[in-house]
C-alpha cells in the first residue's frame, strides 16, 4: 500500500465512506437511471410539444374542458373514497387492536391488496353485475325492484377503491395504532377520562402524524386509479380520470410530450395535496411520537 494513498482512505473512512458504503452505488444508480432520469426527461419533454410554444401542452390542457375536467373528475372519485377509507379505518383499527388474534382478519384483508386492481375489477364485474349475487340478494329481500346499476359507472370505481383501499388504510392505521403504548389510554382512564375523551385527547393527537401519512398515501393511490376506471367505470364519461388521458396521449396518440405534461400535472396535484396534509399535520401536532420511556 503506498504511503500517499493511505491518508485519503483514512480520511474517507472518517466520513463513513469505505468499501461497504460503495455497496449502495448500484441501487442508487439504478434508481437515478430509471426513476429520476425519466422523470426529469419527462419534465423537459413536456416543454417540447409537438406543435406550438414551450407551454403549448399545458395551455392546451387547461383550455380543453375535455382535458382539464379530468382533474375534477379524479378528485370527485379520489377525495371521498380516501376520506371514507381513513375514517372507517380508525374505529376498526382501534377495535382490532384489542383482539388477541388479529392474524386471521389481517390475512383476509391483505388478499384484495395482493390481488390488485385488475382482479378486483373483474371480480366486481361478476359480483356487482345485474345478475350478480349482490343484486340477487337485494331483489330477494325486496330492497329494490330492479337490479341496481353498480358497474360501468362512478359507483363501480368507487367500490373497487373501497375494496382495495380500505384494507390498505386499515393495515397502515393498525400499525400506527398498535404503536401507541396501551398504558397511555389506561392512564387517561384512571384519571377520569371517558372513552370519547380518551380518543380526543390522547389517541387522536398521537395518531395524527400517522393518519396524515395514511391519508396522503391513500389519496395518491386513489388519484392514480387506472385499470378499474376503465374496466369498472365509464371511461368515456364520469370516470374519465386523469391517468386515462395520460395513457391515451402516450399510447393512442403517440404524443409522448403531451403524455409527459399530463403525468407532470398528475404529480403536481399529488404533491399539492400531500403538502397541504403535512402542513395540516404540523398545525395539529407538535412533539415526539414515541412515549418518553427509558
Amino acid at each position: 500500500m503506498s504511503a500517499a494513498r493511505l491518508p485519503l482512505r483514512r480520511r474517507l473512512r472518517e466520513y463513513g465512506l469505505d468499501s461497504v458504503t460503495l455497496l449502495i452505488i448500484p441501487a442508487a444508480l439504478f434508481v437515478l437511471a430509471l426513476f429520476i432520469y425519466p422523470f426529469l426527461y419527462g419534465l423537459v419533454l413536456s416543454f417540447h410539444p409537438k406543435a406550438g410554444g414551450w407551454l403549448a401542452n399545458y395551455t392546451k390542457f387547461f383550455a380543453d374542458p375535455f382535458l382539464y375536467d379530468t382533474i375534477r373528475i379524479t378528485l370527485v372519485i379520489a377525495v371521498p373514497v380516501t376520506v371514507l377509507n381513513v375514517v372507517l379505518s380508525v374505529p376498526v383499527a382501534l377495535r382490532v387492536r384489542l383482539l388477541r388474534n388479529q392474524r386471521l382478519l389481517t390475512t383476509i384483508l391483505v388478499i384484495p391488496i395482493t390481488l390488485g386492481t385488475v382482479m378486483v375489477a373483474e371480480g366486481l364485474l361478476t359480483y356487482l353485475g345485474p345478475r350478480g349475487w349482490l343484486n340477487r340478494t337485494l331483489l330477494e329481500f325486496g330492497l329494490v325492484d330492479s337490479p341496481v346499476r353498480l358497474v360501468h359507472n362512478y359507483w363501480g370505481v368507487m367500490l373497487s377503491l373501497v375494496i382495495t383501499g380500505f384494507p390498505f388504510t386499515f393495515l397502515l392505521t393498525l400499525s400506527y395504532v398498535t404503536g401507541i403504548d396501551p398504558a397511555l389510554e389506561q392512564a387517561g382512564a384512571v384519571l377520569g377520562a371517558r372513552p370519547r375523551e380518551r380518543f380526543r385527547r390522547i389517541l387522536l393527537p398521537l395518531l395524527a402524524p400517522g393518519l396524515a401519512i395514511t391519508l396522503a398515501l391513500a389519496f395518491v393511490q386513489a388519484f392514480t386509479v387506472f385499470p378499474s376506471a376503465i374496466l369498472l367505470g365509464a371511461p368515456a364519461g364520469p370516470t374519465r380520470v386523469i391517468s386515462i388521458v395520460a395513457y391515451q396521449a402516450a399510447f393512442e396518440q403517440y404524443d409522448y410530450s403531451m403524455a409527459s405534461a399530463i403525468a407532470m400535472l398528475m404529480a403536481a396535484v399529488q404533491l399539492l395535496i400531500i403538502t397541504l396534509l403535512l402542513a395540516a399535520r404540523t398545525l395539529v401536532f407538535r412533539g415526539p411520537v414515541s412515549t418518553g420511556k427509558g
Binding site: 403504548d181 398504558a183 397511555l184 389506561q186 392512564a187 387517561g188 382512564a189 384512571v190 384519571l191 377520569g192 377520562a193 371517558r194 385527547r201 390522547i202 393527537p205 398521537l206 401536532f285 407538535r286 412533539g287 415526539p288 411520537v289 414515541s290 412515549t291 418518553g292 420511556k293
Partner: peptide, 27 residues
C-alpha cells in the same frame, strides 16, 4: 377506572408524550 377516582403511577410512567409537563399533570 374513570369512576373510581384513584391515582396511579405506571411502570413506564405512561406520560402523554404530546403534552407538556403542565398539561400532563393537569389532565
Amino acid at each position: 377506572p374513570e369512576d373510581r377516582g384513584f391515582g396511579m403511577v405506571f411502570q413506564n410512567y405512561a406520560l402523554f408524550p404530546h403534552m407538556s409537563v403542565r398539561r400532563n399533570v393537569g389532565f
